[in-house]
Design a protein around this nucleic acid. Sequence first.
DNA 1: CTCAATGCAAAGTATTTGCAACCGA
DNA 2: TCGGTTGCAAATACTTTGCATTGAG
Lengths: 138, 138
Amino acid sequence: MSTTSDSKEAGRWLARAGLRPTRQRTALASLLVEGGNRHLTAEALYAEAQKAGADVSLATVYNALKAFTDAGLLREVNIEAGRVYYDTRVDEHPHFYFEDDGSIADAPVGSVKISELPDVPEGCEVATVDVVIRLRRR
Amino acid sequence: MSTTSDSKEAGRWLARAGLRPTRQRTALASLLVEGGNRHLTAEALYAEAQKAGADVSLATVYNALKAFTDAGLLREVNIEAGRVYYDTRVDEHPHFYFEDDGSIADAPVGSVKISELPDVPEGCEVATVDVVIRLRRR
DNA sequence: CTCAATGCAAAGTATTTGCAACCGA
DNA sequence: TCGGTTGCAAATACTTTGCATTGAG
């Protein structure tokens, strides 16, 4: 359910990034900030919004997720072809990917230590280092 | 150019995986084994095949790449949403991803050392650990 | 008021699939 | 011959875009 405090928190979340708190964005932001760390697709968030009674179009979900990401509120996770996950955690951290059902989870922070980074090509700098631990059922 | 030795090598490459060496597969395999380590998309391989005069349909390129991957001759690399790269190197190694042009390169082997792997969830085992170093122009 | 944000539908991109024709063993 | 492969086109899945309308500041 969407409580007043959720809306307020969502409002702050949007304000922090200088995004205009429209009704749709606030509704989506509420869904994202409640429920802790999440990894969801545009389709999944759209479905949640519908279930929550928010009147938001799929295109707006895509647009909003992109705006949130550009503003640094979310992080894109590219693991599977043809499906973008958005992570409510924006710090650099490894992910588990379950090959069986295609779901994603955070791996424990600091559980992967990268001890040596390679020399990067001339004129480049490291933006991020993405680590995906692909798991299969034993 | 496609030489006789390329075709022979391609034939062995296919035979190693028990794949029937059809004209199309041999042509594609030749393009893949010559030229060393490569990272290409289905579209890119299709374009190369056309340029080389091989009569192969796009669907067949997709089918062949999938068959090669299932047979362990190639490795899928998922970095960008909506675009699958196939790597002719099948061992586990990190990749550079150039955000500017969307291209991929191998990072030096052993350049990334993972010193601690997290405890994986109950009943699961690690299939692979994918490391992508995203680079941007400085 | 004004311009950013939205909704809808249409377009775009990447990939898969159904099925008849084909060809390698 | 026989069943795995192929080609084509249509289908699918996901995401983006164009444009008129709406609404937040």
